[in-house]
């Protein structure tokens, strides 16, 4: 599903070069639930941007769902993001003053889906995250957990190849964070591929696999299930 090989990202500011990612390679298979962990400044945000086709690597290749992504134009990247990637952000990033339904329909608008079908599909996914009674609520009328569930519905609405979550519980009260993680696990059971970026170890525990990153390099890549067993 995802193949990252020898990916480096170097930021240049004048004559100073900052290496954000240094020769990173890994593979994520269909149906995996992987967490990418690391302290701030480790390069995990840069990795997330490259995985999300928001940015292109300086060198190396990135294959997403059998397509090479590393050398595409801005508009081609926009299309990849639209069709293959579902984003869940830390700050939810819903459009203010728009209803839950309008927010979930937004990716469908850019995909050119006709209006009737948009409404139908958006309702279906809002129902799936348990918000069928909040369709006409605007984002400021919803709690943090509810907003994040709207964002999850929005990320799923075009049935993307991967779900990319960036600190999805970072701005949510812990009781609601558990609900969000449950939704992710349910989605994973249904076969969705999920990559989650976090710096919280207990949140990362919900994933099946954790990739530890530090100073732009992968320092550990292991199966959580086995580790849990080993811990017991």
């Amino acid at each position: 599903m995802i193949q990252i090989s020898h990916v480096s990202k170097i930021y240049k500011s004048g004559t100073v070069e900052t290496v954000a990612l240094n020769d990173v390679s890994f593979e994520i298979k269909k149906g995996e639930f992987a967490a990418i962990m690391g302290p701030s400044g480790s390069g995990k945000s840069t990795l997330m941007h490259i995985l999300g086709a928001l940015d292109t690597p300086t060198s190396g290749t990135y294959i997403l769902d059998r397509e090479n992504v590393e050398k595409l134009s801005d508009d081609q990247l926009a299309e990849i993001r639209n069709r293959k990637i579902g984003f869940v952000f830390q700050a939810f990033n819903l459009l203010p003053r728009r209803t839950a339904l309008q927010n979930v329909m937004l990716p469908l608008v850019y995909a050119g889906v006709p209006k009737e079908e948009r409404i139908e599909r958006a309702k279906k996914y809002l129902d799936m995250v348990g918000l069928s009674d909040r369709l006409e609520h605007t984002s400021n009328q919803l709690s943090g957990g509810q907003q994040q569930r709207v964002a999850i519905a929005r990320s799923l609405v075009l049935n993307p190849a991967i779900l990319l979550a960036d600190e999805p519980t970072g701005n949510i009260a812990s009781s609601q964070a558990a609900e969000i993680m449950e939704i992710f696990q349910d989605l994973n059971k249904e076969g969705h591929t999920i990559i989650m970026i976090t710096h919280e170890a207990d949140i990362a525990q919900h994933a099946k696999r954790t990739i530890h990153i530090r100073d732009g390099r992968i320092v550990n890549d292991g199966n959580n299930h086995k580790q849990k067993k080993a811990n017991k």
Binding site: G52, L54, D74, D75, A78, E79, R81, N82, R83, F87, N93, L95, L106, P107, Y110, A111, R154
Partner: peptide
Amino acid sequence: LRKALGAKK
């Protein structure tokens, strides 16, 4: 956000 969700230029 709009660009992240697939809005072209």
